[in-house]
Design a protein around this nucleic acid. Structure first.
Lengths: 250, 250
DNA sequence: CTCGTTTTTTGGTAATACCAATTTTCAAAA
DNA sequence: TTTTGAAAATTGGTATTACCAAAAAACGAG
């Protein structure tokens, strides 16, 4: 109706149209959406399809469905909810550098001996599985998440975990990450050891510095991996990025 | 079947059961879930209900449904996906202190003149609407998000935005926040001004310090608001928290 | 054993019906 | 007139059935 874009699934079209109407301010927070039967007529689909779209909105926290009453707007979509949201590997690693650096600093003041042995075990894990790329990735993730968990702050842990999940949302980013990792397995282990040592001594500043150094190295690996397959035109853009990220790291 | 818990909505029961089976490792990543018709038999519900549950899983990124083939596991549920996840106002503000501090530092090196005027306008906004609590909250949020946007890093912006959204997930936390704010409107404006000045001078360290000072003050306000209504027993816990957070801030 | 066709399985959607909770309507009663 | 309360209409919740299209599996010809 209002939009010609058609995806494979009808309920996605309906849900997307409704989200667009929400974003456009058509239905302010607290107001009631049209009835399912009415929406079925408006979109020219069956009621089960409208219900499927409704559940998609409900799961995303946009609306609350009340039996016998209707669907009421809970919140409006914001940037992150819009489609086409994928972060580059650079943005992702920059964010991790800043956030995980602070998380490591906080973790250094909170970590228990048990958690230290757990982190140490994960450092060994990544050293062992240097053959299997999938195992290495998993061990790396667990290492970083264990430190985030040691902050005893679920908001911090959740945010960092979501940054790792973001890697999967973009195939190119995931590929770039794995490519950048293969060449730098041994340095990664050493950098992880440095972080572990700082945590052991409960030195917040050292932990922050070690974590930032590690992720700065990852960032360098990404830049190198990009350059390897880049044209001269892309090389200029990379150079600009390098300037920016080295500035941010300093 | 495996679980007796029953909520208002059937599709939620089915979806929850499936998520539990995923978390239990019953269906590894990449494997196919049973067919919709089979699940309908297993859960003793109709196929539309199974489909609704399937869409809930799909929206949450757990499975990918392929026409004519089946539903395949994309990722396993993690901590943040489990129910009962709500962060305390303290955790949330501590996370913001660390993350937004770094974001402000990065923003100071990236912000444009146009964005500076935008941030300045938002500082005025919160000063104007010091009567309307809802308007104050909105202006406050926009101020912080504008700074996050100035980092030019969508991963950072998204993470900070989600921290703000987390506030709404817990009614108690939202109430505590609004209560803590009402008393401290004028100091907030001054602290925002300090952040703005640091951004204007493109001083990353000053921006980080100003933002951390602001959020440390918010944290203090939260502790005060908690104490006001706390019993002696709760007071001891608060004291422990104060020690911890002041340590983290130092 | 390989390749192409047929059959079966599986998801996608529609249509209909009925129930339960809520909301609205409206008439009876105070 | 206002209030109250029951009846009617609205709305979501679920089940049933049916049919289509795409994919996968089975199968048969070569």
């Amino acid at each position: 109706m209002t939009n010609g874009k058609t995806s494979e699934r009808l309920y996605q079209d309906v849900a997307r149209s409704l989200v667009e109407e929400l974003a456009a301010g058509r239905f302010p927070v607290g107001t009631r959406l049209p009835a399912e039967r009415e929406l079925a007529l408006r979109f020219d689909v069956s009621r089960p399809t409208v219900r499927e779209a409704m559940i998609a909105l409900e799961v995303q926290g946009f609306v609350e469905v009340r039996l016998g009453s209707g669907a009421y707007v809970l919140r409006l979509p914001n940037e992150g909810d819009r489609p086409g949201f994928d972060v580059s590997a650079f943005e992702l690693t920059e964010a991790r550098l800043l956030f995980e650096g602070e998380a490591a600093a906080l973790a250094a003041t909170q970590i228990t001996d048990e958690e230290l042995t757990e982190v140490a075990r994960l450092v060994d894990d990544i050293a062992q599985e240097n053959n299997d790329p999938a195992g290495t990735e998993r061990a790396d993730r667990e290492f970083h998440l264990a430190i985030a968990r040691a902050t005893r702050n679920s908001a911090i842990y959740n945010a960092i975990e979501q940054l790792w999940d973001l890697r999967q949302t973009s195939p190119e980013a995931a590929l770039l990450h794995s490519k950048a990792r293969t060449a730098n397995v041994k340095p990664v282990v050493e950098e992880h050891c440095a972080v572990l040592d700082a945590l052991r001594s409960r030195d917040a500043n050292a932990a922050r510095a070690a974590m930032r150094a590690h992720l700065a190295a990852v960032l360098d690996g990404l830049l190198f991996a990009t350059e390897e397959q880049a044209l001269a035109q892309a090389r200029r853009a990379t150079q600009a990025k390098r300037e920016r990220y080295t500035r941010a790291t300093a």
